[in-house]
Amino acid sequence: MAKRSFLIPGVDKRLLIKDSIKTMPDFTRRRFIAGGASLGALTLLTGCDVIDSSSAEDMLKQVSKFNDAVQAFIFNPDALAPTFPESAITKPFPFNAYYDLDDAPEVNGDDWKLEVRGLVDNKKSWTLPELYKLPQVTQITRHICVEGWSAIGSWTGTPLRDFLKLIGADMRAKYVWFQCADKDGYNSPLDMRSALHPQTQMTFKYASEILPRAYGFPMKIRVPTKLGFKNPKYVVSMEVTNDYKGGYWEDQGYNSFSGS
């Protein structure tokens, strides 16, 4: 005990705390003392008590929703993600998922059809050869993962906004919701303004080759203005909707807008 009260020569820790407590209003003083003074205050900071409580979780969810609104507000639909020369491409481009490559969906391109649902005029399903006939563009952009790492890749495909126009989608709807072939049913909502961004792409090729299984065969949605988890792979359907239907990671707590 004696050792503890004199961590620093000449400074009595208890005295110091008592001095500061005296300056606090009565109510705070009682709570401060009840909290076990210095150690109690530390618990507050590291959060053993606060963080586990559902009220903290609710607060964080509210702030995340607020952050969605802020991000939508500062989102400029004309701001383009920087593009890079071929020499900047990251090799090998990383495979990334919540499962191993061996467990990645194996989609048969001959059977696969893109289903279109919701607020669209033409709900016809699209085969791969039909989609390949649409005009395609190539762009080399930086993929940024929610984990912080990033990699530059080359993606080729049809701008999503051209396809949405083609199928007569209601552009005033709030979301395009993608469903994927991943095990556990991956899905993710994309806000309409991001869906209509000129660089948002239905991707069929990586580095000028048909999209390999690792990168989402047969179709990936490449959104250079969003974090990686909002770039769904192995897409099987898209739904134009006004309802927020949640998403695989969004439901677990990743910020839903997650725009860059």
Binding site: T46, G47, I51, M59, L60, K61, V63, S64, N67, V146, E147, W249, Q252, G253, Y254, N255
Partner: peptide, 16 residues
């Protein structure tokens, strides 16, 4: 010495 329990929680705290 980390906050949030996992990446998602850490991000929520960071952006709050």
């Amino acid at each position: 010495y980390t906050l949030g329990g996992w990446l998602g929680g850490g991000l929520l705290w960071h952006f709050a």
